[in-house]
Design a protein around this nucleic acid. Structure first.
Length: 230
DNA sequence: AATCCTCCCAACCGCTCCAAA
DNA sequence: TTTTGGAGCGGTTGGGAGGAT
């Protein structure tokens, strides 16, 4: 007994969106705004489910989307926010104007996670990996656990492990514990500075989407949509 | 040039939340 | 108070792009 599907899926198109579909959705929303996602595909003449339309709009078509690579400042802010909020991507995304939760989630999983691991930090707890291991645990056990916890393929894991060993080796051989402690100290200091900066960064961002949403002209067209459709 | 491998990201799935009836 | 259905969220996956062999 499964859950009822979000919509009638028979005859609905799936997979990548075409330019024509994008145009239809974009034109419809810009002209009529958004009231009920379930009605959007019907009214816009799309063979998609409302959920798919919503996702396409939020992640790709929204006019205020920033696009392009994440800056260092954005990455730092992302790490700081993740340390406070965990995997609540939409909450994190709310602090980045022009970025979507999906975009942030993808960037975290593909880039930041690896970056943090290379720095010897656990991407989930943000604590140094070594500190989390109990005294008796072997490196091998940790790697096995990490493999099960992550979505990395064995090949990825091998590559990462080699890099991590190299990095850790350099840290430890370089001059030992005090370097590690210094590194941790720098991270903590950076984290603290970032906390103070997050608010400032947010304030600097221009909220164009809010302006768009607040524009009564765009929303007024909704009045009789259902009536017109039926 | 062909094949394989890895990375990245758009899109989907299934679940929870929440407001309206 | 309970039920229902739409919106939103986070995890996961498929496939294209590009690099390595």
């Amino acid at each position: 007994m499964g859950r009822q599907p979000c919509c009638e899926k028979v005859g609905l198109k799936r997979g990548p969106w075409t330019m024509d579909e994008d145009n239809k959705l974009m034109n419809f929303i810009l002209n009529n705004g958004i009231q009920c996602w379930r009605l959007v595909p019907k009214l816009a003449g799309l063979m998609r489910c409302g959920k798919s339309c919503r996702l396409r709009w939020i992640n790709y078509l929204r006019p205020d989307l920033k696009r392009g690579a994440f800056t260092e400042a954005e990455e730092d802010m992302m790490i700081e926010l993740h340390s406070q909020l965990g995997n609540r991507w939409s909450k994190i995304a709310a602090h980045f104007r022009g970025r979507t939760d999906n975009e942030i989630k993808n960037h975290w999983n593909t880039k930041i996670k690896k970056k943090m691991k290379l720095m010897g930090l656990d991407p989930m707890t943000h604590k140094p990996i070594d500190q989390q291991n109990s005294a008796g645990e072997s490196e091998e056990i940790n790697q096995k656990l990490e493999f099960h916890d992550s979505s990395d393929s064995p090949a990825d894991l091998e590559g990462y492990t080699q890099m991590q060993q190299k990095t850790e080796g350099e840290l430890i051989c370089g001059s030992s514990q005090d370097k590690i402690e210094s590194c941790i100290e720098n991270m903590e200091m950076g984290s603290s500075i970032m906390s103070q900066n997050v608010e400032t960064l947010e304030n600097l961002c221009f909220d164009s989407l809010q302006n768009w949403i607040d524009n009564p002209f765009l929303w007024d067209g909704f009045g009789n949509l259902e009536e017109i459709f039926s």
